[in-house]
Amino acid sequence: MFRREISIEKEASNGELDRTLEREIKLARNIQMKLLNGNEPAIKNGTVSGISIPARLIGGDYYDFYLLPNGKLRIVIGDVMGKGIPAAMLMILTRGAFRSAAETTKGPADTLTAMNNAIYEDLRVLGSFVTVLCADWDPEKQELSYASAGHGLPLVVHSSQQLVDIPVAKGVMLGGLPDVVYNQNTVKIEEEDLLFFYTDGITEAQNENGDMYRTERLEKMLIENVDLDINELENVVTHSLESFTKGLPQKDDITMVIMKVNREKTEIASYNSPIL
């Protein structure tokens, strides 16, 4: 390691190191974007989509979908402590833990327990943590089960423009404590309801006066636009944030997963189902 560092110093004088770093960061960004923005699950009579906008070239936010053999869709959204390259590296660690856990665990709470067991030691050594919200969407029962590892709950908006008060599910962040057993809760989702999972980069976005966007503004905007389809909603949210911050540099990664249930029962068509 020491010899390699000396070698880099000798080779990379006069900006060569800068160019090498820039190239490698761009490659890292490509890797992250491809892993993060993979295929979205096709849902009959319903739609789901995610988007992540890093504050820097790469970021520490994370979302993912996983189709379970029982027909449910597992959704995860997470936020790694910190920003930039260090956060991006831990985001990949979190993704691996989720993908491994998703195959073998029964529900969102079990998934978070397995993820924490898998990465707790690494996160402690690094002095870091990750907040994660994991949810299972059951298209047959039209129920959403969810568990939280230090992450805010999703917003659920009814088509009658009312915010649905969903039961609390609290748990400690991944990397906070060893051997944590997480709890989950369940909410019935009505037809045409909107589900909005997000990271705090949205609610903590600041304008020139230092005021934050805040959850109340987000809720109001979702209520007013509940009739839009998910892609239109993504645009409305991002435009609203741009309008609020008036082009100020983005301070934190912004991530959202939007799901909408159509009038007829949803049916998950196909998406990376594990081979059993």
Binding site: T131, G150, H151, G152, K170, G171, V172, M173, G176, L177
Partner: peptide, 12 residues
Amino acid sequence: ETLGVFQVMKSL
């Protein structure tokens, strides 16, 4: 409270 900071303190 959301993040579980108090839970970590209580437990440790």
